[in-house]
């Protein structure tokens, strides 16, 4: 039983980690809470859904059949690209349309946070208007029996989630360490003024952060919708968990976002197992408060005195 609990925790944890990573990449660069990240995540799922819906009126083909039929596979590839790239573009558009004008006016952080809530609600309502408030699904077809692995049962889809999100996390980490743009993004996160003094254009880095961070949110939204249903309000839970994971990992830290996500996923599932499923979200907040009180720097021990919301 504990094996299954850990496996479930790990799977949902990688999704939290992806959401937290995207959130963190953006937070490090702009230094405010981009709450609308949650709705970008939802849009990723809806973009993919739309492609499948257009290709097959009445829901997409089952993913596990995609490997058998080349036509299915192509549609899925297109759908995933639409979701990931669409989300990336959406993040950039939000920045250019809403945050950039605020930056020009040197607005205080609270204004950015409020604007971000506004964007969140606006786009969420837009999703409701276009797709309706009801639950939709992009994982058509029967649920296949899972594989037995170290005492846990894991489905093909769950393996896919694990592999893809791990690969994305590692790829991001390598990019940030090795690529010139990744280094420049770290430089801006480290010291914005010093970054411009060496010739880095902060606006370009902000653009890259929104593009990459939002694409990660889109990927997370698609991955989760392979496992559960999609609905317009799905972004709220996602961003709350993403932010909690970022804070317990150590706000602004990339490894922190990864560990925080995994930690949160596993802790939540242990809680569900020991207490009850109804307490899931409560457990997340209890963990958050415990960290804020006992270890405000998070797992990575980030110094927070300079940070503000």
């Amino acid at each position: 039983m504990i094996e299954q609990v850990l496996a479930n925790g790990l799977i949902v944890g990688t999704i939290y980690a992806l959401t937290a990573l995207g959130f963190t990449i953006i937070y490090r660069t702009v230094r405010f809470f981009h709450f609308a990240h949650g709705v970008v995540y939802a849009c990723g799922a809806y973009f993919a859904y739309s492609v499948l819906r257009i290709a097959y009126s009445g829901g997409g083909p089952p993913l596990h059949e995609a490997t058998a039929d080349l036509r299915y596979a192509t549609t899925w590839v297109v759908a995933i690209f639409a979701g990931v790239i669409g989300a990336g573009v959406l993040g950039v558009v939000i920045d250019r349309l809403v945050y950039k004008p605020l930056r020009k006016r040197k607005a205080p952080n609270l204004v950015f946070l409020l604007a971000s809530f506004g964007v969140f609600i606006f786009i969420q309502n837009l999703l409701q208007l276009i797709f309706g408030a009801q639950i939709l699904t992009i994982r058509a077809g029967p649920v296949k029996e899972g594989h037995h692995f170290l005492g846990a049962v894991i489905t093909d889809v769950q393996i896919l989630i694990l592999v893809v999100s791990s690969l994305l996390s590692v790829a991001l980490w390598v990019f940030m360490q090795k690529a010139k743009l990744g280094k420049a993004m770290r430089a801006v996160a480290d010291d914005r003024l010093a970054a411009s003094v060496v010739g880095i254009n902060p606006e370009r880095i902000i653009l890259a952060a929104f593009a990459i961070g939002s694409a990660l949110a889109g990927a997370a939204g698609i991955l989760i919708s392979l496992e559960t249903n999609i609905e317009p309000t799905m972004g709220m839970n996602a961003i709350l968990k993403g932010i909690i994971a970022s804070i317990i990992g150590g706000i602004g830290s990339i490894p922190g976002a990864m560990f925080g996500g995994l930690f949160l996923g596993i802790a939540e599932n242990l809680g569900i197992w020991k207490i009850s499923a109804g307490w899931k979200d409560c457990i997340a907040f209890v963990i958050l408060i415990a960290f804020l009180l006992l270890r405000p720097g998070g797992i990575m021990g980030i110094k927070t005195e300079k940070e503000q919301l």
């Binding site: 280094k183 770290r186 480290d190 003094v197």
Partner: peptide, 29 residues
């Protein structure tokens, strides 16, 4: 910076979370 003006700012402002090598690489950004 592109015009050839380069500042070593007050208070050093090196990238503390990056290595010495990375700091110098960023100088040549």
């Amino acid at each position: 910076v592109g015009r050839g003006i380069s500042l070593a700012p007050e208070g050093r402002r090196v990238f503390t979370t990056m290595t010495v090598l990375e700091n110098l690489q960023m100088g040549a950004y």
